[in-house]
Design a protein around this nucleic acid. Structure first.
Length: 234
DNA sequence: ATCCTGTGCT
DNA sequence: AGCACAGGAT
């Protein structure tokens, strides 16, 4: 059953009993959430410097850098970009080529450079340097889609928002909780109690990066192996 | 549906 | 060599 009070050290502590009381009645999802929490309790989360960033504009740029990129490479690009171009004005005035060169490690640097430069321009000129705090306006921004908008709302504006990335898709699909990607949001919002969306997103990302990896997942070491369709068929 | 795009892993 | 990556736009 539930092994005492689970604590997520990195993100602060919370009482898993309360948490699990709010989760739905389905046995599989119950086990799923419990096992993930137990794993997060023991695991050592990776520490990327960009995770400590709270500035809304930089988070906005980060969500662009993260597109189809690996976290370590994004961290490198992130440091380079804001070391050389610390302010929004700096980014706005920088030639696209310079931005591209700075963020090269994150991949797709030409596209991302264009997106970041336009972002800076719009935030500076149309929003007077303030990143909008609602999803509608965020989605209007170039290079900002569902995921990027949710990331900004969650981590820059402290909103309890469900974020869905490839890690979430992959984990939910393999375990067998969803068949198609469109089902992810519904399932997640039923699965994860309000107030814990951000924490769980980090857990999904870490679990997806360390255990349920896209290639060569570590199924033998995985706490979900007993309930996971993928683990049973491989 | 397909493109964008560099790098790390297998 | 080939696939995959904290996606988004056309």
């Amino acid at each position: 059953m539930i092994c005492g009070v689970l604590k997520i050290m990195l993100l602060g502590n919370f009482d898993a009993h309360k948490l699990l009381d709010k989760v739905g009645h389905c046995v599989n999802t119950h086990i799923f959430v419990t096992k993930l929490l137990e794993w997060a309790d023991k695991a050592t989360f990776r520490d990327f410097t960009y995770r400590h960033e709270t500035d809304a504009f930089r988070k906005l740029c980060l969500s662009v850098l993260l597109q189809r990129a690996r976290p370590p490479q994004v961290d490198e690009a992130y440091k380079r970009l804001f070391t050389f171009l610390p302010t929004i004005k700096d980014v706005t005035n920088a030639p696209k080529g310079q931005i591209a060169e700075l963020i090269r490690p994150s991949g797709m640097h030409q596209i991302k450079a264009e997106r970041i430069r336009k972002l800076a321009e719009i935030i500076l000129n149309q929003y007077n340097g303030r990143v909008p705090q609602n999803k509608e306006e965020l989605l209007e921004l170039p290079g900002i889609g569902e995921y990027a908008a949710d990331v900004v709302l969650a981590w820059a504006f402290n909103q309890d928002v469900t974020m869905i990335d490839t890690n979430v898709y992959r984990i939910l699909k393999r375990v067998g909780l969803i068949k198609e990607e469109g089902e992810a949001r519904t399932i997640l919002e039923r699965l994860i109690p309000e107030g814990y969306r951000r924490r769980f997103n980090l857990i999904f990302i870490e679990f997806g990066g360390l255990i349920c990896k896209p290639i060569k997942p570590r199924c033998p070491n995985c706490t979900l192996r007993d309930i996971c369709h993928y683990a049973k068929s491989h």
